[in-house]
């Protein structure tokens, strides 16, 4: 047996509490700032005790944004973020399921080549191909659109790989049985493979939704009109104000609203999230 040491147990809890505190502190301080009135902020005293204006500030940014800074209502930006995140996650899952199905359950000429082509996208994050990608999307007339925001981020190989791994672990007898019973490939895909993949799809959705919501660089270059801003990217217009202090209570109310949906997703679907991330069968 491993020895029990009360001192060590206490130390564990202390370290974990300290860790949780450090992790939580920035968000608490953001909440404190977001709950101050404009006048409180002027006094320059920002401690650990929240004020009473959080609801008012949140309402202001949701409905009005920050007109003086050219920032649209946060409610609108959050809606844009939602469309982008959904388009990325649903689009990526859909095309990945289909292509993984083709790669695992069919043998066709060019299969290897296509597999490697998909694979190569792992080496091309949007950051390294930003200028030419902008040009392509502009040529397609897709700037300032949900499709333009989503398409260049949709085809990464990560989801394709996960589904390929999973399909390979499905007993081949299932496909064989389906074929003997006269089911075509699509019938097998819809009636057998998809239901079996349910948890994997859900786990992938959680990860991709967060990935999509949190995009920054691509929305920054692919949106020109303010009404198309996403919240994660739009906030920089409030922070980077030339020759002036940012209006911190407004900025922090926006930051908190902007992180709320993905944080809620993680907290509500913690188990799926960990599964999607670690990818194990635990």
């Amino acid at each position: 047996m491993v020895e029990t040491r009360p001192f060590l147990a206490l130390l564990r809890h202390l370290v974990l509490l300290a860790g949780a505190g450090v992790v939580l502190l920035p968000v608490w301080l953001a909440f404190v700032a977001a709950s101050m009135s404009g006048g409180d902020m002027m006094n320059g005293e920002l401690g650990l005790v929240p004020g009473s204006q959080f609801y008012a500030n949140a309402r202001t940014v949701l409905v009005d944004g920050l007109r003086s800074g050219g920032v649209p209502p946060v409610g609108l930006m959050m809606l844009n973020s939602l469309w982008m995140a959904l388009a990325i996650s649903i689009g990526k899952i859909a095309i990945s399921l289909l292509s993984a199905f083709a790669i695992v359950y069919f043998r066709f000429p060019l299969r290897k080549l296509m597999f490697w082509m998909i694979f190569m996208t792992l080496m091309l994050p949007v950051e390294v191909r930003i200028v030419p990608t902008f040009k392509v999307v502009a040529d397609f007339g897709l700037l300032d659109s949900t499709a333009g925001l989503a398409l260049p981020l949709i085809a990464s190989a990560t989801a394709t790989f996960l589904f390929r791994q999973f399909f390979l672990s499905v007993p081949p007898e299932l496909a064989e049985a389906a074929r003997i019973d006269g089911a075509g490939p699509m019938r097998f895909f819809v009636d057998i493979l998809l239901p079996l993949s349910r948890t994997n799809i859900a786990a992938m959705f959680v990860i991709l939704f967060i990935y999509g919501w949190n995009q920054y660089l691509w929305p920054l270059v692919a949106t020109t009109g303010e009404s198309h801003y996403t919240v994660v990217m739009g906030i920089q217009r409030m922070v980077a104000v030339p020759d002036a202090e940012p209006i911190w209570n407004i900025v922090m109310a926006t930051a908190l609203l902007g992180m709320l949906p993905p944080v809620l997703v993680v907290l509500a679907m913690q188990r799926l999230f960990v599964k999607g991330l670690v990818g194990g069968d635990k």
């Binding site: 859909a94 095309i95 289909l98 292509s99 069919f106 082509m117 064989e176 097998f188």
Partner: peptide
């Protein structure tokens, strides 16, 4: 034995991902 036989279907299935990969990555 677990492989389906179909001439055009696999290309159709993989086409969306290949199209996006070509247009926006390669």
């Amino acid at each position: 034995s677990a492989v389906f036989k179909n001439r055009s279907l696999p290309y159709l299935l993989i086409a969306p991902q290949i199209a996006v990969t070509l247009a926006f990555f390669i």
